[in-house]
Computed example of a mutant assay.
Amino acid sequence: MDAAASFSQATPQRLVLAGCWTTLGLGDLPARLAAAAFTQPGGGLEIEAAGVKALDSAGAYVLQKLLLRLGTAGQQAPLVDLPAPMTALLRVVGEQLAKTAPVAESPRARPGVLERLGRSSVASGSSAGAELLALLSFVGENALALGRCFAKPARFRWRPMLFNLRLAGLDALAIVGLMSFLLGVVLAYQGAGQLRQYGANIFVADLVGLAMLREFAPLITAIIIAGRSGSAYAAQIGSMVVSEEIDAMRTLGLLPLELLVLPKLVALVIALPLLTLFADVLGVLGGMLMASVKLDVTPTEFIERFHKAVSVTSYLIGIGKAPVFAAIIVLVGCFQGFRAKGGADSVGRQTTRSVVQSIFLVISADALFSVAFSALDL
């Protein structure tokens, strides 16, 4: 059996190699070489290789790494008495190591403010684009689930729908009515000063009626519901995702979209137009009260002018926006809830994101409605 590869430092200036520097003969030699400290009081370190009986590519690699290590440390380490065939192999392995050695990169200067701003903008834009595509995919999945429920009504969860109808509709009457009433008061109060200057007090009915029915009532109702119910949807589903209840539903063969999303969607599509109608009434009452106080317009005069100024079309435009706003609130809230992961911190973050995105999309949709109705001369 051939002798295993070995090394010894006979003197501080002389390192002696011996044995078979081959795959089978190396053993733990690379680890021992890495742990050894080759030092000398002065001069170079000569490597005596006359005792090397065999050398293959593995041994040549280990030997070349030793030579590179000693060279990096600043020591002169000539290799002597190595047979010519082994020297040729060692040279070939050294050339390959030189080709594959990583090139040290020059240190880059710290990026400037504009570069950092650009990089963060690109990163956030990519993230926003990916999230938009995911949201569109989520909308498509819900459309398919809703289609399956229309094809087979027995699949639809009626009891959760009625429960959500009470939570999102009946329980929200107080806050929606109060906010709409105050908005009508503020609207009439702000217009009173200008109308009084021109003796056009009676036109406060036009101002309050058209503004509340077409724009403010559906918009303020949707914003309130986005903060009240949209956040609850995201928090509920996010908590279920974190606690792995959603995975348990899928394991049991239950579809989370049919069980959690569609009942909320149908309930809010029904509830939001009714809440908008309630907001219309309270907002007009608030404006009527302020018109009576600030402009001496009696309720009878207000109602007569309101009947002439506000058409059924204006009323239907405001009511028609509500189902679109409801779908936006439910889909965004549930979508962000399903994207929660990790722990409670993620649930809170996704809940905040759902409210911000819902309100942004509702206002954007309202702006698009305004442009479309203006183009249609409605």
Rank of each mutant, 00 (worst) to 15 (best):
R32S: 11
S374K: 11
L70D: 09
F325D: 00
A128C: 09
L68P: 00
A35W: 11
A73L: 15
F369R: 04
G129K: 08
R91V: 05
S231V: 05
V266S: 01
G44M: 08
A145H: 02
L285Q: 06
A73D: 15
L274M: 14
A10F: 08
G25L: 06
G193M: 08
L162M: 13
L173P: 02
P160V: 08
V80P: 00
L45P: 05
A145P: 03
A58F: 06
A134H: 09
S121M: 14
L255F: 03
E215M: 12
V92F: 03
A151T: 07
A123T: 15
L254S: 09
S126F: 12
D280N: 14
L63R: 05
L165Q: 02
V52L: 05
L260D: 00
E105T: 13
V297F: 07
A174D: 12
M288C: 13
I175R: 00
V113P: 01
T221S: 14
A77C: 13
L178E: 11
F7L: 04
D296E: 15
G343Q: 08
F302Q: 03
E301L: 13
I270N: 04
A174Q: 11
G169H: 03
L79V: 12
G51S: 08
R353N: 00
A226W: 01
A109T: 15
V312P: 02
S292G: 15
A84I: 12
I359A: 02
K152V: 06
A50I: 10
A60I: 01
A271V: 06
L29E: 12
R228T: 13
P83N: 12
S126C: 11
A205V: 13
L79I: 12
D171M: 07
A60E: 01
A205Q: 10
T22V: 09
R214E: 07
A84Y: 06
V269E: 02
R32K: 15
E258V: 03
V312T: 14
L146D: 03
A4G: 08
L68A: 09
P323Y: 05
F302V: 08
S314W: 04
E215V: 14
K53A: 12
T221I: 10
D345C: 02
L277C: 10
Q64T: 07
D345Q: 10
A58T: 13
G343T: 10
V261R: 02
A34F: 07
M212D: 09
V362F: 00
P256D: 12
Q76F: 07
S126L: 14
S346G: 04
V312R: 03
G112N: 13
D377Q: 14
A31I: 07
I329N: 01
A73G: 15
L146F: 09
V284Y: 02
L117P: 05
L268W: 03
F7D: 01
L70E: 09
G118K: 14
M240N: 03
L33E: 13
R91S: 11
A154G: 09
G25M: 08
L26T: 05
A291Q: 07
T100W: 05
L117I: 14
A35V: 11
R196I: 12
F278W: 15
A232Y: 06
V310E: 02
A60F: 04
G253R: 11
I359W: 00
L136A: 15
A101M: 10
V52D: 00
A200L: 07
R353A: 00
